[in-house]
Computed example of a mutant assay.
Amino acid sequence: MFVRDGADWRAVGAYPDATAEEALAYFERKYQDLAGQVTLLEQRVKRAAPAADVAKTVAGLTETLREPAAVGDLQALRDRVAALGGTVESLTEKQNEQAKEQLAEAIAERTAIVTEIEALAAQDLAKIQWKQAGDQVTALFARWQEHQQSGPRLPKGEANELWKRFRTARSHLDSARRSFFAELDATHKDARNRKQALVERAEALIPRGADAIPEYRRLLDEWKQSGRAGRKQDDALWAKFKAAGDAIYQAKAEIDAQENEEYEANLVLKRALLDEAEPILAITDREQARQRLTAIQLRWDEIGRVPRESLRPVEDRLRAIEQHVKQLDDRFWANNNPEKKARSQGLAAQLEQSIAQRETELAEAKERGDAAAIAAAQEALDAQRTWLDALG
């Protein structure tokens, strides 16, 4: 099988035991394979494949197309490959610029990660929230690893310097975090021991029943000052401490229930006594009201205690009656205060004298027919009569 290659014919090979058409088809397929490689390379150049790879492929195809065992327009393939070879230099320059930009962006991104963790490490670590800070450190390290794997390779010197800064900040945070939790564990252990002791003391009070309530309340005050022992430990210890308190207060509740049953009869008597006493609210005679109230109060004390939940309502009803009698006393003594009475009598005498003078002035003004003088005298006379009535 021969092919015209330029001005000459060149043997490309033989295909034994086949027809001429079969042999031609075979070498044409060889040509199509080469054309496919050239087309693929052209597409890679359009997609901005690495220039070094393109140059290597161009060189390989150039050598392959020198005298290929194929039938077709070989020169056209050589021209297409040669044209691609001319783009390698510009492609290399463009990709170098892109690589520089990507490297600058990668350095900036990794520096930002380092700056963020350094800012975290520069905080007042005595006030930092370690749960949140720990999550931040983990997230920053994950970003570092992802950037290291997917981003461009940084120059060794810069990469090492950034990693050294990142590692230093992370080590500082990890060390402070371990110290914090070690101290927290010690604090929790101390609080746990104190609360365990309080639980034991509270449980020891149970046999004393209601009499132990004051002591249990003191233990409760100590509990509030004993600090945190960790959520699980706190919940478990509190359940035991509260169970002891419930047992103590249950004993008190049983006593109260028994007492309330005994006091129900007293409540009935006191309510009846209040019904008898409340008509005092309508009495205006101080002596009569005081005598009746005193008799009620004596009988009230003799009856005794009432159930706790009913104490306030019955006491309020009695207080209302006592307040009424007190107001009668206050009003009596206000009206019968010797000093005040003397002052009132002296002022009354002065007012009566002034009223007589005003009446004379009014009569004289009427004789003269002086309307202005009549009005002034009448106004002064009315005011002084009002004052005199108030003193009476």
Score class of each variant (00 low, 15 high):
Val3Trp: 05
Ala334Asp: 14
Ala108Ile: 01
Ala51Phe: 08
Gln196Phe: 01
Asp285Val: 04
Arg331Tyr: 03
Ile248Cys: 01
Arg192Asp: 08
Phe180Leu: 05
Val268Met: 11
Ala122Arg: 07
Asp190Gly: 01
Ile128Val: 01
Glu22Asn: 05
Ala371Trp: 15
Val3Arg: 15
Trp238Thr: 05
Glu379Ile: 01
Ala69Asp: 04
Ala373Gln: 04
Leu388Met: 07
Ala376His: 01
Gln32Leu: 14
Gln258Val: 09
Glu379Cys: 01
Arg358Ala: 03
Ala99Asp: 13
Ile255Met: 08
Ala244Ile: 03
Gly134Leu: 05
Gln288Val: 09
Ala48Met: 05
Ala210Arg: 08
Arg208Gln: 11
Leu273Gly: 00
Arg47Lys: 13
Ala253Ser: 14
Glu200Asn: 12
Gln350Glu: 14
Asn335Pro: 02
Glu261Gln: 15
Leu311Cys: 07
Leu274Trp: 03
Thr57Asn: 11
Glu67Asp: 14
Gln297Lys: 15
Gln345Met: 12
Ala112Ser: 05
Gly134Trp: 03
Glu116His: 06
Glu309Met: 10
Lys240Gly: 06
Glu146Asn: 15
Gly392Glu: 08
Gly36Tyr: 13
Gln378Glu: 11
Val199Ser: 02
Pro279Leu: 11
Trp238Met: 02
Glu276Asp: 13
Tyr26Ala: 11
Gln149Leu: 09
Arg231Asn: 11
Leu65Ala: 07
Arg319Gly: 00
Leu91Val: 00
Ala229Glu: 04
Gln225Asp: 08
Lys366Asp: 06
Ser90Lys: 08
Ala182His: 09
His147Ala: 12
Asn160Ala: 12
Arg165His: 10
Leu140Glu: 05
Gln123Gly: 01
Leu311His: 12
Glu361Cys: 06
Asp174Ala: 04
Gln129Thr: 01
Ala277Thr: 09
Pro313Trp: 01
Arg217Tyr: 08
Ala380Cys: 03
Leu184Asn: 08
Glu367Ser: 07
Leu74Asn: 02
Phe181Glu: 03
Phe241Leu: 05
Glu261Cys: 02
Leu154Pro: 04
Lys127Met: 02
Ala99Asn: 14
Trp223His: 08
Leu220Ser: 15
Lys195Met: 08
Leu120Trp: 01
Thr92Ser: 15
Glu215Arg: 06
Ala289Ile: 00
Ala14Asn: 10
Lys224Val: 00
Lys94Gln: 10
Asp33Phe: 13
Ser90Glu: 12
Gln145Tyr: 04
Leu125Glu: 06
Ala191Asp: 10
Glu215Leu: 04
Ala49Asp: 14
Leu40Gly: 15
Asp174Phe: 05
Gly151Tyr: 06
Ala133Lys: 02
Val71Ala: 09
Ala119Ser: 12
Trp163Met: 14
Glu352Ile: 06
Gln136Arg: 15
Gln258Gly: 13
Glu287Asp: 15
Thr64Gly: 01
Val114Ala: 14
Leu61Glu: 01
Ala247Pro: 02
Gly60Lys: 12
Lys30Tyr: 08
Asp185Asn: 13
Arg170Gly: 04
Leu74Gly: 11
Ala356Met: 13
Leu269Trp: 00
Lys189Met: 07
Leu351Ser: 11
His188Leu: 00
Leu84Cys: 02
